[in-house]
Design a protein around this nucleic acid. Structure first.
Lengths: 233, 233
DNA sequence: AATGGTAAAATTGTATACCAAACACCTTTC
DNA sequence: GAAAGGTGTTTGGTATACAATTTTACCATT
């Protein structure tokens, strides 16, 4: 119809008629991640559809989408529930995320452009500024950006997709961990090591630094879990 | 209605009230994987729903599920298409699958039971028998079982899920590669090395052997691609 | 003949209605 | 009084109907 040398324009203009299901998924994801819909919360299709002012059909689609991202558990003939991953499952997620980011580091060294490296550097600089004065949420978001920028620079779209999913599933755990200012210096030092390895275009060192960083995050998360579990029983 | 102490019967009879969407997804996946629905094929919701004798609603759900598994591409307001991954994308999938299986090997060494190790060994033995006389499809299925058994023994359900997805997305590429009898001896030797490393409970050796095996598969697939592309242009 | 526009057909997106299974509460029974 | 069983409400699963969008085909114009 309207192609022949205008292929690049399409991307720009992209009028982006997003479906209601897409919007609902986005909205629900946000509600879950920030905790407005807490883990274990049951979701009534009818009630939710009324509250979001959409019909059940697109809402169901949104729910299934989030189920595929492991943010919602859906069992047949039962109310969908906001995922409440067990500690063991969270550990499992961390292990996978670690190898994903490790691969990202290796590929980044091979493929990333100078701009992409500069981007990561810029984010790390910003992170350092926020670390001193900024609020926890902004620090966390920027921390996530650091990792996403590395994955993005790896130029592997499948990896990017899967990494984003695991990030969402790990969101709460990592956020709770990120709020702990006691670990902030160590986190920054690990980031610095990662960045240096990337700048040096040292694949193995980058991979190792990222693996270490993720497994450290996993360990921190376990410590935090034990501390907050203490008062309960 | 008809319960009260018959709960176990349900399990035995395995009525497994699976949704139509689930069934449809299974059926579609099979059709796609065996090539009855070739890559790039557009799928009309109405026509498919009639052919599968279900209404559009569960069919749509099935399509979205397969889209999440990257077997179907779905764009807004457009007919869904059977995924037709580019060579580069397939390479990307291989790279991720390689680190996933590498992790599986490491975890297997740590956690797998003797039974699970025996299972892998048994599969390898069967594979050796099939290699000489069996048909390509059975060889391929068994080959996949070998890998799945290792992932299963790793005891990481998130990893298992993601690995299964990548396997589905790579199905055609790996099947085409698997049919080539010329590589069969090398494949068997690599499997032997993997198995020995697992038996020795050597994490690093297992991980390395699996990585090597996968990257070899990727390379073979690239060779095959070039050979079959030759006649076309 | 090729291009552009327009209208009709086909298709997807959304809403609604209906059905069957599941859960909670209450009654009944021992 | 406790447990089993029945009943009603709630809920998810499915089908159908309608609206919005895209695709296709055709025609007019250059």
């Amino acid at each position: 119809m309207k192609k022949t040398g205008l292929a690049d324009l399409d991307d720009d203009l992209g009028v982006e008629r997003v479906s209601l299901a897409e919007i609902a998924a986005e909205r629900l994801r946000e509600l879950i991640l920030v905790g407005r819909l807490p883990p274990g919360q049951t979701l009534s299709e009818r009630e939710l559809s009324e509250r979001l002012r959409i019909s059940r059909t697109p809402l169901r689609e949104a729910i299934r989408k989030l189920a595929a991202e492991r943010l919602i558990d859906v069992l047949p003939n039962r109310r969908p529930q906001v995922a409440d991953p067990s500690p063991d499952y969270i550990d499992d997620l961390f292990d996978v995320q670690a190898v994903l980011e490790s691969l990202a580091g290796r590929l980044f060294v091979e493929r990333a452009s100078a701009e992409q490296l500069a981007e990561v550097t810029a984010i790390q600089t910003r992170l350092g500024q926020i670390a001193d004065s900024g609020d926890p949420l902004e620090f966390f978001r920027t921390d996530m950006q650091f990792h996403s920028a590395i994955v993005s620079g790896a130029g592997n779209s499948a990896l990017a997709d899967t990494h984003r999913q695991y990030n969402a599933a790990l969101f709460r755990a990592r956020f709770n961990s990120s709020r702990q200012t006691r670990w902030r210096d160590v986190v920054m030092a690990e980031h610095k090591e990662i960045l240096e390895a990337l700048c040096a275009r040292d694949a193995e060192r980058s991979a190792a630094a990222l693996t270490w960083h993720l497994l450290k995050a996993k360990a921190n998360q376990e410590i935090l879990r034990r501390e907050t579990e203490q008062p309960a029983p």
